[in-house]
């Protein structure tokens, strides 16, 4: 089973404004109006805020510790104030410990804003994107940065587009199964150390570590580079995790599913994922079985649940038999001439 505790989970507590700017600069078409001022500040909250009410003077519940986004509405409001009023507004707003401010839609921030922000050591950025678009981008970026991640020992392969994670004790043959799947044209995401990142509320994205990438250890051979050996089509960098398969030696006392109706799930970072326990036996081709599991998953995804279909057929057949019996009783009455 997968062990998840504080030792293998990680969540960023904060990111620096510098990291945010350097990473997101090109993606969000950002430019800085305050040079490198305020780059050492930390963003500790993944949410964003539009400081409309705070600009108007209501600062009671001002979530100042978030990235502040100033759009057309805020700027129009500021335009109709005179310079002294604007100065007052910004002096009140920027006394708070704001991580950074982004002005959207290619607008230039008011002079008063830039000069007071500079004094307070707060970065002011501008973006070409509209407020709605930028809010989405920044929200998604921060969501990803602050997402919880967990590191798991296993092999992660994309089989027919289905992300399958193989887990099990060391030496059971996870890497060998992965290698076999790659040989059959599937794509390796990561071997040995798999890092799963929570994306949104119900998606886990798996990837390898920077150092290992697509290297793999095969017992008896040593280290193998899958990318150079099987080519670029045999790898991918990230994949959504969809099924977890635990390989284990055949255990007489354990019960394995026979019909597929009893779907087991496993909980990782509060996300439920289908979980299959696969016993290993001599003569059992785990690779082919894995492919079948992936295809079955795809069928289910497209609305065809094999186990359910079979169950329905069985039910139908039983129902017909009982009906036939009823028919016979009626037939009996028909032939009963009185």
């Amino acid at each position: 089973m997968i062990k998840i505790d504080s030792r293998n989970t990680k969540r960023k507590e904060n990111i620096s404004v510098e990291f945010f700017f350097e990473t997101a600069r090109d993606k969000f078409k950002l430019k800085s109006y305050t040079g490198e001022i305020g780059f050492e500040k930390l963003i500790c909250d993944q949410n964003i805020h539009r400081p409309g009410l705070a600009l108007a003077g209501f600062v009671d519940l001002f979530t100042y510790n978030r990235v502040q986004i100033v759009g057309n509405t805020e700027l129009r409001y500021l335009q109709q104030l005179d310079s002294t009023q604007r100065r007052q507004v910004f002096e009140r707003l920027l006394q708070f410990d704001i991580p950074c401010i982004i002005v959207t839609d290619g607008n230039t921030p008011p002079e008063e804003m830039v000069s007071i922000a500079q004094n307070q050591g707060i970065a002011v950025f501008g973006s070409e994107y509209s407020t709605t678009k930028l809010s989405y981008f920044v929200g998604d970026f921060l969501d990803d940065q602050f997402a919880p991640r967990v590191s798991i020992h296993g092999s992660f392969v994309d089989v027919y587009g289905v992300g399958m994670l193989f887990i099990g004790k060391s030496g059971i043959g996870k890497s060998e199964v992965a290698l076999d799947l790659v040989e059959r044209g599937h794509r390796l995401v990561a071997d040995d150390v798999v890092i799963l990142t929570k994306k949104g509320e119900n998606v886990l994205i798996g990837s390898g570590t920077k150092l290992v990438k697509h290297f793999m250890e095969v017992r008896g051979i040593g280290i193998v580079d899958v990318k150079s050996m099987f080519g670029v089509r045999s790898i991918r960098f990230q994949k959504r995790l969809e099924i977890i398969i635990e390989l284990e030696l055949w255990d007489n006392t354990a019960t394995y599913t026979r019909t597929g109706l009893d779907n087991k799930t496993i909980d990782i970072l509060d996300i439920e994922l289908p979980y299959v326990k696969l016993p290993i036996l001599p003569g059992k081709n785990v690779t082919v079985i894995s492919e079948v599991i992936a295809l079955n998953y795809l069928l289910k995804h497209f609305g065809y649940d094999t186990a359910k279909e079979f169950e329905n057929k069985l039910k139908e057949s039983i129902r017909k038999k009982t009906e036939e019996k009823d028919n016979r009783t009626i037939n009996y009455f028909e032939h009963d001439f009185e």
Binding site: K10, D192, V193, L211
Partner: peptide
């Protein structure tokens, strides 16, 4: 016995060379 190494939020199986080198 199973041997695991934990560092910086990584869980590494100590019987795997790639993991340990990671």
């Amino acid at each position: 016995s199973e041997f695991f190494i934990y560092k910086d939020g990584l869980a590494i199986n100590g019987k795997s060379i790639i993991g340990v080198m990671t």
